[in-house]
Computed example of a mutant assay.
Amino acid sequence: MKTTPEALKAEWQAGRFEPVYLFYGQEDFIIEQLCEDFLAKALLAEERDFNLDIFYGNEADAVKVVNIASSFPMMSTRRVVMVKGVEQMNAGPIQLIHKYVTRPSASTCLILTAEKLEGRKSKLHDIQKVSCSCEAKILYDNQIPDWLRKWVRQFDLTISDEAIRLLQAHTGNTLRSLAAEIDKLRLNLQQRKNIEVQDVEQVVGSSKQYTVFELCDAVGAKNLNRSLNILSAMLQNGDKPPQLLTMLSRHFFILAKLRELKSKNLRDDDIAKRLKVNPFFLNNYRRQANQYGRDQLKTAFSHLLEADQHLKTSYQKPRLVLETLLFKLQYHIR
């Protein structure tokens, strides 16, 4: 059974728990929050010493996982067993866990997490069919405002639309980073209950780091020096080259799609919805799209594909691959 984070939380709040859960997807912050929310409802703090076991896929012993999951809880109504990164286990151990989930213990909740389910023949797909599964997808630009409103609501706070726009522009779409900034804003609010744009300017602006959106903007605006400086800072801060390349590719896809929609006389809200971007950023995308013709965008995608292949197969340093890409995107497609 496939479900959503909201539906899961409602079930847990009502005291209803399934014997097997599979949380998977690229948004690890959502998965982490699901695990925390589950534990808060499933076990009391004093029950966890004897009834909570957490394993990691790259080092877990599947026999031990199954044995513990099959045992009865101690002085509690349920036992919880978590295997984080289950996709890192070999086929044999996953097969053993699959055998368990077809006939799970009624007094145990087994939670499996994975970044992805791998190929069609993976046993994780079979586990998904007999478990309560939830996919944690990376949110699009236009989904972030609603997420932020829900996130601050748990602290009995509200946030203005202008504050959301500025926070998203400063921080990007990484949920973990957004949640960290909200924590700073909460401390600054004191007794107030609404986050305003002035709060974001004061708190987030003072600790701002470059985001992938600023990198994309600099590339889209053909500002080579700025884009190289941002790239250097982001790599030093630990951003991963494949993720940066993915976001650059998505940025150029938006520019190409925007050129296609230009002749359809759509309202800005409709265009933003089709592009899955925040309407606040639409004019910026439009200005950048006007700098590229159809052939130039084709060339840009060719350079992006070449960089992807180099990152995956060549011995070139990832930093050099990305710096070369930025140069090509801004000078080889004029």
Rank of each mutant, 00 (worst) to 15 (best):
L235D: 02
K121I: 08
L245M: 00
G15V: 09
N188S: 15
N290G: 15
L175D: 07
P5N: 02
E323A: 11
A179K: 09
K312E: 08
Y24R: 04
R286T: 15
L167F: 10
D217F: 09
V66E: 07
P279Y: 08
S105I: 03
R153I: 00
D37I: 04
S122A: 10
N290L: 14
D61E: 11
D183T: 14
P19D: 03
H332A: 12
K312V: 04
W12S: 12
Q243A: 15
E118T: 12
L22W: 02
K312Q: 12
L157A: 05
I271G: 01
H251S: 14
Q296W: 00
T77V: 11
E196G: 12
Q13T: 08
F281S: 05
R192A: 15
E46Y: 10
R79D: 08
L8V: 08
Q13S: 13
I230H: 02
N58A: 13
Y315A: 14
L320T: 15
K208Q: 08
V80L: 00
E47Y: 11
A114C: 07
K262G: 06
R250N: 15
V219P: 07
A289Y: 10
E181D: 13
R259L: 09
N194R: 10
S302G: 04
F29R: 06
I138H: 08
S71A: 14
E323T: 15
T113N: 02
E115P: 01
E181M: 04
D183L: 10
A14V: 02
S177I: 06
D156E: 14
E214A: 05
C134S: 02
P104G: 00
I138V: 13
E46T: 08
V101C: 03
D268Y: 05
I54H: 07
W151A: 06
Q128K: 01
Q190P: 05
G85C: 09
I164C: 14
I94Q: 12
E135L: 09
L39F: 01
E135F: 07
I30C: 03
L52S: 06
V66R: 04
L248E: 11
A69N: 10
S227D: 01
R259H: 06
E135A: 11
L8H: 08
I127N: 00
D49G: 13
N237E: 15
T4F: 10
T324A: 13
L187Y: 07
R274V: 04
I54R: 14
E118L: 14
H310C: 09
L175S: 10
A7L: 14
F29A: 03
N173L: 04
K2M: 11
E59P: 01
V65R: 02
P104Q: 00
L326R: 04
F23N: 05
L255Y: 04
Y210S: 04
L261P: 06
Q190S: 13
K137H: 07
C216N: 12
L43I: 00
A169Q: 00
E181Y: 04
R79L: 04
I195S: 10
R274M: 11
A45R: 12
I97G: 04
Y140M: 01
T158V: 08
K273R: 13
L117F: 02
L112D: 01
V204T: 09
E196C: 11
Q198F: 12
